[in-house]
Design a protein around this nucleic acid. Structure first.
Lengths: 351, 351
DNA sequence: TTGAAAGCGGTACCAG
DNA sequence: CTGGTACCGCTTTCAA
């Protein structure tokens, strides 16, 4: 196979280009571009172009378009774990909102590592995303610097930091945890324990622990009884060993608050294996209102958070900010810096 | 804290470009490009460039690079549902393999819709991905045409089609289901039911149903007892109503095979609510070996499939194909057209 | 409504 | 080892 030496009908390799479409339709490249963008063009022209596009199976090159117009169609989102249903739900909500505007999500999984997050932010930025959504408020200095310099809208999700980089969509995990402790105390439980992860990287988990500790103290429920075990993301396998450790150390515990429903579920299953009745012998509460919480037997008392809604609100916030910038609005018309997401304690059978 | 006062030089808007780096380092753009690509350059030059890059916080524009070099760093992957743990695991495996090569995943969620898949394929193709991985073997004609014309390597995952578009990485859901029925029959169960989804879009679910029916017939276990209920993805909430329907129609059922562990879990919880012992009164088996299967009480007998491994093998297959093409190998040196993934029946407490 | 020219920010290629 | 030049495929801008 020799290289085609110019001239004559060269059997063009690779996919068709806009110029190919233009030639076939008998118009200029520009006209094709306009038709595809849905801008002014006579009906006849539009049809001819469309026909050529179909015939050739033309798919416009997004990189070229982005380079030329100076704006990509990307929005980046980073979550700590894609296999955690609340984060994949958030991504789902974000996708639903953004795809209406033709925006394409660039999804990254930080695996709860700030270093990985930094690497991913850098990589995402290479694609000049129109905006970026991160999970949590904890980032390396380099990450912050990168984001600041990028100048694009940034949303931090799942938390309400006192000093957001730009905008935040979330709730106070500390307060939510306190509310759960109040609920348990209200049900008459006094000796309340907590099980969560050992990692210091899961800021939201740590905040829940903090909320637990604060409220236990506030309610005068004695010394906190907290077991910290296992790495994030906390999965179902976490609950069994954790509850075992808790009961070994504080056998007279009456109720346990878990950092997540996954953990609570594992704990409940372990109790069943031991012949302990839930909530009769031990009450167990979760966090997050995952599907398992409503399907499990007994059903799990938990804090319900609208993970999908966080994604939606994040998307809407980003779109609003982008629209405002489009119109050249200054910092004034910026979207609100903090969007508070509701949560509620859902009382079920387990506690 | 030296606040770089903005000198009178033109306040360039936007992020720094390669030419800015070049100017600051006192070299040509090309040299910067080479240094960043890790190609030949004297140590001194490399250091100067690196310093300039750091100082400016330069992040190369991927779109420009892709356009110029004619090759993007994207690989596209489409799954039916990101919130289903087996698919998010597959995405995880794929990510792990591809990121070693600096490739960036473009993730799409088809929501079990072939039309959505087609739209997403078109959208992905706009970014000129180096390769694309789809789930399943069922696609619209237009999707097939798009993929064919794109000329990039295609992998179909989670199935072993008789006529793959290009390459497939998966296993036979029919055979796996048959094996589970054989297992149940081997345990002495005769009146075996099946619960699965009603949607015709979940090909893998349908194949499992088909395998169930075939093997029930082959074993002479009487008429199949199949309940089809609910949309994909099958979640935990599916199992309760499904098992209720099954028992209503065939009260003397001894064992039930579920299309997924999610479903099996919901069914088991429903049995517990009804006071039915599993497996004493009713044996229940799942599919997929999700985490819940090993955490649940009783633990769930299931078909174990290495979802993460499917992602890894897909990544490896794609890389191999890309490498082969790089070397100009013809169709000969192509990667194998079918990569078989192992599965095993895992015997646990529930059946 | 349509077309021609310029150029987005990099990389391939070849020369020095 | 380094630099100049052309150009990737598209959109912007301006002119017709």
């Amino acid at each position: 196979m020799t290289k085609t030496t110019v001239t004559t009908a060269a059997p063009k390799a690779g996919p068709p280009r806009m110029s190919d479409v233009a030639r076939l339709a008998g118009v200029s490249k520009m006209t094709v571009s306009r038709v595809l963008a849905g801008r002014s063009a006579s009906l006849a022209t539009r049809e001819r172009v469309q026909q050529a596009v179909d015939q050739l199976g033309y798919v416009a090159d997004a990189a070229a378009g982005a380079l030329s117009s100076g704006r990509s169609e990307f929005v980046a989102v980073l979550v700590p774990s894609l296999s955690s249903s609340n984060f994949s739900d958030t991504v789902g909500g974000l996708t639903a909102v953004l795809e209406r505007e033709g925006l394409q999500l660039l999804i990254g999984d930080t695996d709860y590592s700030l270093e990985r997050e930094e690497r991913l932010v850098r990589q995402m930025l290479r694609h000049q995303p129109r905006a970026i959504a991160l999970t949590g408020a904890q980032h390396t200095d380099a990450t912050r610097a990168l984001l600041q310099r990028s100048g694009i809208p940034v949303v931090e999700m799942w938390d309400l930091p006192s000093e957001p980089i730009d905008t935040a969509v979330g709730f106070s995990n500390v307060k939510a945890a306190r509310e759960m402790v109040r609920y348990l105390a209200g049900r008459g439980y006094r000796r309340i324990g907590f099980i969560g992860g050992a990692s210091t990287l899961d800021r939201r988990g740590l905040d829940r622990l903090k909320g637990y500790q604060m409220e236990v103290k506030a309610q005068g429920l004695g010394e906190p009884r907290a077991i910290r075990l296992g790495d994030s993301p906390i999965t179902m396998s976490h609950g069994g060993p954790a509850i075992a450790a808790l009961l070994a150390q504080w056998p007279d515990t009456e109720a346990v608050m878990c950092v997540s429903d996954m953990s609570a579920f594992g704990a409940i299953m372990e109790c069943q294996r031991r012949g302990l009745k839930v909530p009769g012998d031990l009450a167990i509460a979760g966090f997050g209102n995952f599907e398992v919480a409503s399907c499990c037997h007994p059903t799990i008392t938990t804090v319900s958070v609208d993970a999908y809604g966080i994604g939606e609100r994040t998307g809407e916030t980003l779109l609003a900010t982008l629209a405002a910038r489009e119109q050249g609005d200054g910092a004034d018309a910026r979207a609100p810096r903090n969007v508070r997401i509701d949560y509620t304690v859902v009382s079920r059978e387990s506690a």
